[in-house]
Every structure is written in structure tokens, then in C-alpha cells.
Design a protein around this nucleic acid. Structure first.
Lengths: 346, 346
DNA sequence: GTGAAAGCGCTAACAA
DNA sequence: TTGTTAGCGCTTTCAC
């Protein structure tokens, strides 16, 4: 690995000049410039990013904390973040906390402010105090997927998406199709991270004067969805539709319906939230409410930049960035309610 | 961010001593040691990894090049690699080449030898010459998922998995269940990266004196599997079983069968290769041949370490690491062949 | 046992 | 337009 000095020597100039050429700082003569570039070429010189980072006082990477890659949403989001970060000339370090706050803490301690310039956090089971700690050390920290635009977290900048509205959109879609007996599956615990989506469901059901109490919470996975939907369908045979707060459980619901011989969408409509890739690869394909993932990723990176420029401190004005509204994607799992479609009334 | 010097000053010693304490170099008095640790504590000192890397001449991260995260296998593999890398005290940088060799090249140029100590490559559409270039600069490069243990790549160390045997295992399983008319779906092109798996299929079929020519190649995705299986099933109604060279197309085959009213496994058996998470979340659950993903990830990281210690050069003895054999995981998509199960003979 | 000094590869004033 | 100097935060001989 050739160094700046070697290039400089070969070109008969000094390291500073080479640096200037490479950074396009201007104020370099055409002739020297050419000689330098020739030397760079000849030696196959590549800037040492770590050295540059140390000198500049800023790191070339951004870290993304995720809790698990078992959930296919995170890789999709990570990909979107990677793109945004690259556009910014940086690299992405993926930190898998494995649902373990201690491991998350360990990551933060080592990375924040040393090899990563900023920390992007998805729902990674991190303790908020740990994050605040890091933020206080002057390292930009951004929460990427905050679910309540109206109630931003205390002291941390975030990108918020109106997931409550997503819950409303999903539910409204079913009402418009004539459904009235609708159950809801919550991924995670009912008071957990997906609670806002559930609240959206309740909003619309109450407003329509319908029963919003048919709910089952299970882990946010296909398997969880199978169990939750199974319980709901068995206990309430009159249900004609199901809202799931996430696509994975929605897909599980699809399986649970098949297990019971209920045809989707003829006998049962199902709608999810997020629109992961997999949603268009089920049979039938999943109707869902799409979340602006790529946009959120871009906003998060922008916010990180803004924070850095502000020296880690953020004025309240720029603390929350709100992504555009979720939107309905109608596919194959929802249809008009049919009289007598359910086994019997609850 | 407190620095070593600040800690030293507070403890009334010099930076060198603090460093010695922190690295557990011994030769430090108990009293000073205690004072230093106290100062570290009080100041909340964290070593600056970039600075340390520069001084030590080695980077704290390893890079993993992947072509796309759309294929759920890669995140699973990335997770396994991340664990192995962490065990090694390093961090993982995920580089998404987006199937674009140019982007891959750009990544290599910037990262290799500067912020990443080694490069792990999955099938990332990289030009081999580019990789050799990097390797020649003394940066350890390891190919993680080489499909032909008997034919290692020229000049690059690799972790090999016997995918041909995986193809054989899948096919043998079907033969043992009495199937004789079996089609094969190749993910990617027939001569592409999954060719070894296909060869395994051919081995076993030929050996049994059966027709090994019923093959369809489509992109390595669920959608591709739907198309490939559809074509096969329509052209050869007598087929009783399908081997797919990957789980994704196998899942697609499941859909194609459903679309045609063929029940799995009663009318049609399907077996995949890899055993991604999703394989146990389909209906019915997918019989497949499991690849030792985590083991391969661990071996790759070990190989990278060995290379680094050898200064980037590898003797032939340590150039190829072979992971253990794939193994059959019988689930719900395969069953005994039933007379007259197919629509009609081909 | 502890400190002084040099250097990792680069950038950024400031001088010339 | 180019060179000089200092320094980013750390490790590592080598003296003391």
C-alpha cells in the first residue's frame, strides 16, 4: 500500500500538495497536478481512510443498530440505509444487537465516535439511557423508525412514520369492503412497539361503532401470526377479516386460514402493514399498507448529517423528521365481504 | 470524548502507562494500575478505535461483499459472519454491490487495507481480476461460499461447501420415496453459480438410469421458481417431484403447484437446497438440504485471520477450507410417490 | 515499573 | 502555487 509520501516523492512534490490534488482544493498548477496524478496511477495509491478519518476528526462510517436479521424487514431497511449512506460517501457498519441490550451497549461504547460518525437505531432493544449517554458525548444518534410522530422520544432526534395512520388505513380498507367483524393481530406485545398501529385500528372501529376488542398478540413473526390468527378464528368464527400490525404475522394468518379451510379472500380478508418484499410473493399476494422505508432511511441519514454539522446538538426545530404517509397496496388477500361467508356468527 | 492523555494526566502517569494497563501488558504496579482504572472510569474513557488501528497498522473491521439483500439467504449469512467477526473482536461492514461489478470495485478500492482488514466475498458479481488485485496488495480476501471443493478458484483462498453433494442428497431422497419422473429447477442460469447443485442431480438420476433432462432455469427467486415450475409442470404433467437448486425457487414451485391444483406432497413432492429460515415457514413446510451456513461463516473468518498472520500470502495447504457436508431436512413437501398421482404420463 | 520519543498516514493552518 | 509544521489518538520500542 503506497502512502501519500511515496506518491509525493515520486512526483517531486510534498505530501500536502498531493493531498490538495486529491481533494481538488484548487490552487495547484496544471503541470504538478498532472505529475501527481501520474504518480498516483503508477503506484496504485489509495487513500488510507482510517488515517484520513483520524486527521479530519470524523469517521467514514455510520453504524446501524438492528436487533435481529431474522425479521426480513431489517435487511430491506439496512439496504435502503446503505444506499443513503453511500450517496453520502460513507460506509455502513451493521451492528446486530441480537435483542440483547448489553451487546448493544458494548457496540455503542466501541463504535460511537471512534469508527462511526453517527448511530442509526432501529428498534434494537437498546436502553434509552445508553443512547442518551452516547448522544451526550457528542455523537449523533438518530432513531429511524419512530412510530408516533405526535410523541417524539425525549432528547433524541428521530424519523417518524405515522404508523397509527397505517393502522387506520388498513382498517378503513376493510370497512369499505363491507367488513364489520374484524379481528386484529398485534406483532409483539399489545403495549409494545407496534401499539400505535393497533391504536389506529381501534380509532376506525370505534368511529364506525364496531367491536374493536377482538385482538391477539404474539411474537412478530410468521409463526406468531399463525398462532394469533388461529386463536382468533377459533374463538370468533364470525370474523370476516383480520388486520395484522405487520406483514409477517399477516402471512402467518394466511397459513392459519388455510389450515382451517377458510379461503382467502373469499371467506376471509387479511391485510398487513409494511409491504416487505415477501408480501408480493405469497399466495394469494398480500394486501398491505406500505411504509416509506427508503424515504425514512434517507431522512435518517440527512438528520445525522444535520446533527453532525450542529456538533451533535440539535435544536428542537430539526429534531423530528416526518416521513410521508403510508399508503394502501391492494393485492389479493382482501375482497368484498360475502353474506354468510363466515362459518357462523359470534 | 476523553483521550488517553487526559486519562494519563488525571492518573498522574503517562499515556504509555495507561495504554499498558488497558492492554493488560503486565509490568505495571498495582497502585498505578488502580489509579489509572479509576481515571478511566471517572472520565468515561473509550479507546479511539480508528487511532488504535492506525497505530497498530490493522483495521478493526472486516468487510462482507454481498450482491443484494433481496435474497433472504444473504442476511442470514451476514448475521452468521457478524457473529464470527465479533467473536474475533472486530466489526462487520456490509458492502452491497447491487449486482454491479463497478460498485464492487469502488468498494474494494476504498475499503481494502484502509478501514477493513479483510474482505469476505459471497457471490457478489465481482470480477475475479479485481479481487486478485486486492489480494496482491496484501489484503486478505476470502471467497465464502465456493460451490466446488474439488475445483478451487485460482489464486484466491476459499471456504468450499459441497453443493454437488447437496444436489445428490436432494435427488436421492426423492428416489428413495419412489419417484422416477423428477424435474429440476435451477436458480440463475444453468451454467451459473448453482451449476454444481444441478450436476449432483444429474449424477444421481443417471446412475439410476433415469431421465435427467427435465430442467428449467430462471432467476433465483420465488417468482423465478413459480415460472420455472409452471413451465415444467405444464410441459411434463407426469412429473411427480421437483428438485430446486435453492429454497427460494422451491417455494415458488410450491405456489406453481397450488396454482394448478396439484397438492403437495400428495400429488407432487418438492425439495430445495439451503434451509433458509423461510423454509420452515411455508405451508406445507419445505423439505430441503441444509447448508452449514454458520460453519462456513466461521471458517471464512478463521481463514481471514490465518491469511493476515501470513501477511496476506497463503501457502496452498491453507488455501481451501471445506465445510461439513450438507444434510437432509425432511419436512412437509416430500412424500412417497403415489401411483397415478400425476395427471398423466409424459 | 514508568516515561520519553517516534511514528502510523493523513489534513490543515500558515509561511514562503 | 507549493512547502513547512503541527497534530489527530494511539502503540511501541527503548531508556531510565
Amino acid at each position: 500500500m503506497a502512502t501519500l509520501d511515496e506518491v509525493a516523492r515520486r512526483a517531486g512534490v510534498t505530501a500536502a500538495t498531493v493531498s490538495n490534488v486529491l481533494r481538488d482544493r484548487g490552487r495547484v498548477g496544471e503541470a504538478t497536478r498532472a505529475r501527481v496524478l501520474e504518480a498516483v496511477q503508477a503506484l496504485g495509491y489509495r487513500p488510507h481512510l482510517a488515517a484520513r478519518a483520524l486527521a479530519e476528526g470524523r469517521a467514514p462510517t455510520v453504524a446501524l443498530m438492528v436487533s435481529s436479521i431474522a425479521n426480513p424487514f431489517y435487511p430491506e431497511f439496512a439496504l435502503a440505509v446503505e444506499r443513503a449512506v453511500r450517496r453520502n460517501g460513507q460506509f455502513l457498519i451493521v451492528c446486530n444487537t441480537n435483542e440483547d441490550p448489553l451487546q448493544g451497549r458494548a457496540y455503542l461504547d466501541q463504535i460511537a465516535g471512534t469508527i462511526s460518525e453517527g448511530i442509526l437505531v432501529t428498534n434494537a432493544n437498546l436502553h434509552l439511557p445508553d443512547l442518551l449517554d452516547v448522544a451526550r458525548r457528542g455523537v449523533p444518534v438518530v432513531l429511524c423508525l419512530w412510530e408516533r410522530p405526535d410523541a417524539p422520544p425525549d432528547g433524541l432526534p428521530c424519523v417518524a412514520i405515522d404508523f397509527r395512520e397505517a393502522g387506520r388505513i388498513a382498517t378503513r380498507h376493510l370497512l369499505e369492503l363491507g367488513h364489520e367483524r374484524i379481528g386484529v393481530i398485534v406483532g409483539g406485545s399489545a403495549s409494545g412497539v407496534q401499539a400505535a398501529r393497533y391504536d389506529g385500528f381501534v380509532d376506525v372501529m370505534r368511529e364506525a361503532g364496531l367491536d374493536a376488542s377482538i385482538v391477539a398478540a404474539e411474537p412478530d413473526s410468521i409463526e406468531g401470526g399463525v398462532r394469533a390468527a388461529g386463536r382468533l378464528l377459533d374463538a370468533h368464527p364470525g370474523l370476516t377479516a383480520l388486520v395484522a400490525t405487520n406483514d409477517l404475522p399477516a402471512i402467518g394468518a394466511l397459513h392459519a386460514a388455510a389450515d382451517r379451510g377458510r379461503r382467502v379472500p373469499d371467506d376471509l380478508s387479511i391485510v398487513g402493514i409494511t409491504d416487505i418484499h415477501l408480501a408480493s410473493d405469497t399466495r394469494p399476494t398480500l394486501t398491505t399498507v406500505a411504509i416509506p422505508t427508503a424515504e425514512a432511511a434517507g431522512l435518517a441519514v440527512e438528520l445525522l448529517n444535520a446533527l453532525r454539522e450542529a456538533g451533535g446538538r440539535s435544536d428542537d426545530a430539526s429534531r423530528v423528521r416526518i416521513a410521508s404517509l403510508p399508503r394502501l397496496v391492494v393485492r389479493g388477500t382482501t375482497g368484498r365481504v360475502r353474506r354468510g361467508s363466515a362459518t357462523r356468527s359470534t
